[in-house]
Amino acid sequence: MKKALLVIDMQVGLFHGPQAPFEGERVLANINALIVAARAAGAPVVVVRHTGPEGSPIAAGSALWQVVPELGVDVHQDHFVDKTRPSCFFNTGLAEWLDDAGVGELVICGMKTDYCIDSTARLAGDLGFKAVLVADAHTTMDSPVLDAAAIIAHHNQVLAGPFVKLLSTAEVSFQG
């Protein structure tokens, strides 16, 4: 089964915004390691950007909408998807593109755990994809109710099993 890496919302406005993501530098390093591993195996790298309406801080093309420059993506080699809702699948053509590319398994990483990571991980299986959530390669920020570490731990526990296979960066393989 062909695998693809799905890198969600690693954008300037989120990653370098007013509230820093939990262990952001570690998560970024893990995502970059996953990108290197995916490329070495010939697996597609799909980069998703959340896009706000015209005039918003994260409108298409704005400085805050851009992918963080520290992320090892290649605009000529990787597949870019723009979304307007938390799910990477809603009105984006992503599922169709993955089907056309023969991808059956998604390795999910990025931001934000409690929104776009959660929504995408839950829907992937309903669309026929096996999903792997990389436990140490997604992040979020503190909320008024829970700190980011608790949000991440909660989602890793809740999603593992019924929605995703939970692996660490070191455990992920894009072979076969």
Rank of each mutant, 00 (worst) to 15 (best):
L98E: 00
F90G: 01
R85N: 03
Q157P: 08
P57E: 01
D78F: 05
E23F: 09
T113Q: 02
I108T: 03
I152L: 01
V47R: 06
L64W: 07
A33E: 14
D126L: 11
L133C: 07
L71Q: 02
L123M: 15
F15I: 11
T169I: 10
D114L: 11
I151E: 01
V12A: 13
Y115E: 12
H79K: 08
H76V: 07
A37K: 15
A137I: 07
H138W: 06
T113A: 04
K165V: 08
L106T: 02
A149I: 10
A124L: 11
A63F: 11
H79M: 13
I31S: 04
N91V: 13
K112F: 12
A38Y: 15
F80M: 02
Y115H: 12
D142W: 01
I31F: 12
Q19T: 13
L167D: 03
L64T: 03
V67L: 04
W97M: 13
L146F: 09
D118V: 10
H79T: 10
C88T: 07
A101N: 04
H79V: 10
N32L: 14
I31D: 03
V107K: 08
E96N: 07
K83L: 01
F174L: 03
G125Q: 09
G13S: 08
M111H: 08
S56G: 03
A63H: 05
A4W: 15
T140L: 00
A148P: 05
G176N: 14
D78A: 00
A131I: 14
I151D: 00
L5H: 13
E171M: 10
V103L: 06
V132R: 12
D147I: 13
A37N: 12
G13D: 06
V27K: 10
R39W: 15
I8D: 00
A131M: 11
A170C: 05
K83W: 03
H50Q: 09
L28F: 13
D100V: 07
A131S: 06
P18Y: 12
G61M: 04
A43L: 10
A60I: 13
K2L: 11
A20V: 12
G72T: 07
P53A: 08
F22Q: 09
E25A: 14
D142F: 02
P162A: 02
Q175Y: 14
D136F: 08
M1W: 11
T51V: 11
D142T: 00
I35D: 05
G176D: 15
L167F: 13
Q66G: 03
F163N: 02
G42N: 13
K3C: 06
V164P: 00
L34P: 09
A148V: 05
A63R: 15
A131G: 04
V75R: 12
D142S: 00
N91E: 14
H79G: 02
L127A: 05
A135Q: 11
A95G: 01
R49H: 08
A95E: 04
T84W: 12
L14K: 09
T84V: 07
R49M: 09
R122G: 03
D136T: 03
G42F: 14
G161R: 04
G61W: 10
A29I: 13
F80S: 00
Q175V: 14
W65S: 01
G102V: 07
K2Y: 15
I108N: 00
H138R: 01
D114S: 06
E23D: 14
F90E: 05
V103N: 03
A170I: 10
P21H: 05
G52D: 02
S173M: 04
P86E: 02
M1L: 10
V36T: 10
G55I: 14
